[in-house]
Write a protein that binds this DNA or RNA. Structure first.
Length: 951
RNA sequence: GCAAGGGUAGCCAAGCUAGGCCAACGGCGACGGACUCAAGAUCCGUUCUCGUAGGAGUUCGUGGGUUCGAAUCCCUCCCCUUGCACCA
């Protein structure tokens, strides 16, 4: 019967579902393993990258099950937040890109679009209705999930649980109210996310320092990202055509652009406009530098954007190529300024003021940089690059001048923040947020930065950080280098705004207009899995904070513990902690670290996560997958084409879980071919009769069985380390390499037939986690029991045999040497003569073995023997050669090698060699009296390496 | 810039944490052969250079260093990928 994955896989899916094979219930006395993976976010369909994300934990779950554990692998759906809502909105607005993405990438038929018009409709569709839905994909892949525990984060009961979590955190003082800058659409009057942006998706807002220059009572704040240049300011620029306002800002009178008025108003400033006037009215005004007390002039410039910062900028020609070039141009055209009543002499007198020194440049870095680049006017596009370069170098290498007092002599990068804070405290500086370039929302509104009232998770709390670090310490971090990343993230996290103004999810219990955001409502939900299906029977209104207190903190923390909660507590205690969480690398810096933080705070140490495995990302034909570009591979398509086992095997075998993988159709096709071949061979074995009990075994049989035991050990060790690639490569491809030799060597007796069955049986058990459909099917056909229902194999000591491995190695290398010679000479031999090293050479070998790799010492010892001394040079050469050959081998192996009867080994293999080369094979001892040695080759014989003569 | 990962023979990709069985696993492609009317599939072999005896030479981003010995350890430089937050 040919391999037909469709049929085999359908049968097993049905059987697993009917048996409830993967429904896991707590069972006293059985070891529990709890495997989790972040629940999918159904804002679109499932693609092949997701398939791997969920298959990796499945393979581990299956492995642990074969190892005898009671394994729980649950799944749920994350529908919190704005992406789904946003996707629905875009659909309603008939956004063509969105519709194309749904139809092209995820194959949504026109007729189904109507189902996607509500957020939960949209979510449901991609959870289970669509061909490309997650649940259908997971079931097709054969993931061993306990589906009874499924839920969504929008479910009432789940929300009760999250409310309990947040009330608890608030009560512990880990939640705090405050203001936070966010991207804000002025048209919708609402915060927006990156997905909501039409223009400027890549742009991040920045915190600008406002340097409060003053013209009499009127402050003229100027925005800069380089507050340390305050001493280098030579003048200011204003847009003469812009509209400016004199406004009361928190009790001070400020001159700012009208655009800045709006922005500051949104940044928690109290702003009242008192009069408006065109920028030109302020040209020529004198302003005082708050740090140096110098008086500077405000000059007109068309390059000033009133919609950036405050609309008034300072000029630092010594350190900014832009400003330097502008100043040159201004000087050249100083006459034009008379129209503003400015004396050209004033402009002519402006000279760059350097404030720092830096190696690569002279006194005026901007001047040098501009001249070196040959820039003469401000329209030269190269000026941006030059500016960036000067900014970078000055930041990292610029040493501030002595005028900076405490900051003098320091590198900018080290003191910029401090310096800003210092002058802010003195009232000379202030700050505002803004974008460096225009940002527009999909609704068409201008996007600015607004301070929003919000609730923060206090990840900056030192006690909490300490607990989180403790959780990392006991964590099995896979790969190990992620450990450092967790530590780093914990140290670096500050306050995290954990609510949104809209979207799906759990409302903040005490302020229901806010929704707890997705990264914050998914930190301890693994605990919810342990009781999810049983919670369904508890009336929602009974799921009070006291109920969850009882469940998770125990009976002692509440006055009157509910019985049901105590029962569920036993479930939780049975399954928890999480054995391993499989996740993505980009989640280390947020979700996974939050996961650790919350566990560390809410649960006792023994309930903290035991392991996290971070998985690599997927590429498709060498390129990043992108659902918006339709560059995706869907699991259902792949499974239709290749079968689920092939998809699984490719995904797990092409790289280790934490490495990136590349889905390439040709490689997947090849994987399928390999499985076809495996199936055919397995069927041959299954259909061949073999004795039930081990008959007499030949050398090749014992050799391959010894190899099999090594393979079992290697695969098991790899699985324990989550090295699925190593494990599957070893069990499948590596072992097949050995099998090729075996097939060449093996006879056709009952021993061979028995050995083949024995090998197949073990191999199927090792492969069952990877290709469960095929492995179970074949194993059942072979033995009557599916592979997943028998214990994971362990090395059978009956067949562990180091000697047979080494002996066969001698045969193999003899075979290869003969082959090499045949190839080089291009002649077919009629007779192969093999000369085994003489006894005196073995004595030398023994000496090398005992003394080690010191040539002098070995020679000293060996020359004690008069018989050997006679051979002088030959002994010396042999010693050197043997030392080379034996280097790195351990004593045990050497002892074994010394003990092998080489001649017997070759004699036993002579028939085989003769068949292979179609020649007669003669075995001699080097010192045999009746030796045939036409070309005097025998002297080349060395222990473990016979001399050869082909005739 | 900071942080992490990576640069290996035509391509993909092991090995590098414990330096020497590494000319460097494996796959693809290519070439030769077997099977076949033929093609495909399958199987066997070759695939850095030289070589009519199992060998020798030169390779693992660059340039140095440590060592008897380095793809493997240390340093310099070049290049590539990813992340840098309120976005799941």
């Amino acid at each position: 019967m040919n391999y037909d994955p469709e049929e085999v896989e359908a049968a097993w899916r049905e059987r697993w579902a009917a048996e409830g094979r993967y429904e896991a219930d707590s069972a006293a006395g059985e070891e529990s393993t709890f495997v989790t993976v972040p629940y999918p976010y159904p804002s679109g369909g499932m693609h092949i990258g997701h398939a791997r994300t969920y298959t990796v934990p499945d393979v581990y779950a299956r492995y642990r099950r074969q190892q005898g554990d009671n394994v729980l692998f649950p799944m749920a759906w994350h529908v919190t937040g704005t992406p789904i809502v946003g996707a629905v909105e875009r659909l309603q607005q008939e956004d063509p890109a969105q519709i194309e993405s749904l139809q092209e990438a995820f194959g949504v038929p026109e007729a189904d679009l109507v189902e996607l018009e509500t957020p939960m409709g949209f979510a449901r569709y991609f959870i289970e209705r669509a061909e490309s839905s997650y649940k259908q994909g997971m079931q097709a892949l054969g993931l061993s999930i306990d589906w009874r525990r499924e839920f969504t984060t929008n479910d009432e009961r789940y929300q009760r649980f999250i409310r309990w979590q947040y009330e608890t955190l608030r009560d512990r003082g880990l939640l705090e109210r405050g203001l936070h800058p966010v991207k804000y659409c002025t048209a919708q009057e609402n915060p927006v996310t990156t997905h909501d942006l039409l223009e400027g998706e890549e742009v991040d807002f920045q915190e600008y320092t406002l340097i409060k220059f003053a013209g009499g009572e009127l402050f003229v704040p100027m925005a800069t990202l380089r507050p340390e240049t305050v001493r280098g300011v030579t003048n200011a620029y204003i847009d003469p055509a812009g509209t400016y306002a004199e406004a009361d800002v928190d009790g001070e009178r400020w001159l700012i652009s009208v655009e800045a008025v709006e922005k500051l108003g949104l940044q928690d400033r109290c702003v009242t406009v008192e009069r408006e006037a065109p920028g030109r009215d302020y040209v020529g005004m004198r302003v005082r530098n708050p740090v140096t007390d110098e008086d500077l002039v405000v000059l007109p410039a068309t390059f000033v954007d009133p919609d950036n910062g405050t609309g008034v900028v300072m000029s630092v020609p010594a350190h900014s190529p832009d400003d330097y070039v502008a100043l040159q141009e201004l000087k050249a055209n100083a006459e034009d300024l008379t129209e503003y009543g400015i004396d050209p002499a004033v402009v002519a007198a402006i000279e760059p003021v350097p404030i720092l020194s830096i190696e690569q440049y002279g006194e005026i870095p901007a001047k040098d940089a501009v001249e070196a680049a040959g820039i003469t006017d401000a329209t030269d596009p190269a000026i941006h690059e030059v500016t960036q370069e000067v900014y970078n170098r000055e930041f990292h290498q610029g040493v501030l001048n002595e005028e900076y007092g405490a900051f003098g002599g320091e590198v900018v990068a080290d003191v910029r923040d401090e310096l800003g804070a210092h002058y802010r405290e003195l009232g000379a500086f202030d700050r505002m947020y803004d974008f460096p370039e225009p940002v527009v929302s999909r609704a068409g509104g201008k996007v600015v930065v607004a301070n929003q009232e919000t609730w923060f998770l206090r990840y900056d709390d030192p006690e909490w950080k300490k607990k989180a670090h403790a959780a990392v310490e006991r964590l099995a971090a896979i790969p190990e280098n992620t450990r450092e990343q967790y530590e780093h993230t914990i140290d670096w996290l500050e306050q995290w705004p954990c609510i949104r103004n809209f979207g799906l999810g759990t409302p903040l219990p005490w302020d229901e207009e806010f929704i707890i955001e997705p990264l914050s409502d998914s930190t301890i939900y693994m605990a919810y899995y342990t009781v999810a299906h049983q919670l369904a029977d508890v009336p929602v209104e009974e799921l009070t904070p006291a109920f969850f207190d009882t469940l998770f903190f125990g009976p002692s923390v509440v006055d009157d513990p509910v019985e049901r909660a105590l029962e569920l507590r036993e479930e939780w205690e049975y399954w928890y902690p999480v054995t391993v969480r499989c996740s993505a690398p980009d989640l280390v810096a947020n979700h996974l670290t939050f996961f650790l933080f919350h566990h560390a705070e809410l649960f006792p140490e023994e309930m903290w996560p035991e392991g996290i495995t971070v998985m690599g990302l997927g590429l498709l034909e060498g390129e990043k997958m992108s659902s918006s570009k339709g560059h995706v591979e869907l699991p259902n398509d792949a499974i239709d084409r290749y079968g689920a086992d092939t998809v699984r095997f490719f995904l797990l075998n092409s790289s280790e879980p934490w490495q990136d993988f590349d889905w390439r159709a040709d490689a997947v096709g090849n994987t399928r071919t390999q499985l076809d071949r495996f199936w055919d061979r397995a069927m041959d074995v299954i259909e061949t009769n073999a004795p039930a009990d081990p008959p007499a075994l030949e050398q090749p049989d014992r050799w391959i069985l010894a190899h099999l035991q090594q393979t079992v050990d290697t695969v098991t060790a790899a699985m324990d380390r989550f090295e699925t690639r190593t494990a599957s490569q070893t069990a499948f491809y590596r072992f097949r390499e050995q099998l090729r030799w075996y097939e060449r060597r093996a006879g056709d007796g009952p021993g061979t037939a028995w050995t083949r069955r024995r090998i197949l049986e073990t191999q199927l058990q090792l492969l069952a986690p990877f290709i469960p459909f095929m492995a179970n099917e074949l194993h059942e056909r072979l033995t009557g029991t599916p592979a997943e229902d028998v214990p994971w194999p362990t090395a059978d000591t009956t067949y562990v045999d180091e000697r047979v491995l080494q002996e066969e190695e001698l045969v193999r290398s003899l075979y290869e040497d003969v082959g090499d010679i045949v190839e080089v000479t291009g002649e077919e031999p009629g007779v192969i003569r093999v000369y085994v090293a003489a006894p005196w050479k073995c004595e030398v070998f023994d000496a090398v073995r005992e003394i080690g790799d010191d040539v002098g010492q070995v020679m000293g010892e060996v020359m004690q023997d008069p018989e050997l001394r006679e051979r002088g040079d030959a002994v010396n050469r042999l010693v050197q050669e043997l030392i080379e050959d034996t280097r790195g081998l351990d004593d045990e192996t050497l002892a074994l090698l010394a003990d092998i009867d080489e001649r017997a080994v070759y004699t036993a293999a002579a028939e085989f060699l003769g068949e292979q080369f179609d020649a007669d094979v003669e075995i001699y001892g080097e010192a045999d009296p009746d030796i045939v040695d036409p070309t005097d080759k025998r002297g080349a014989a060395v222990p473990l390496r016979p001399a050869i003569h082909l005739d």
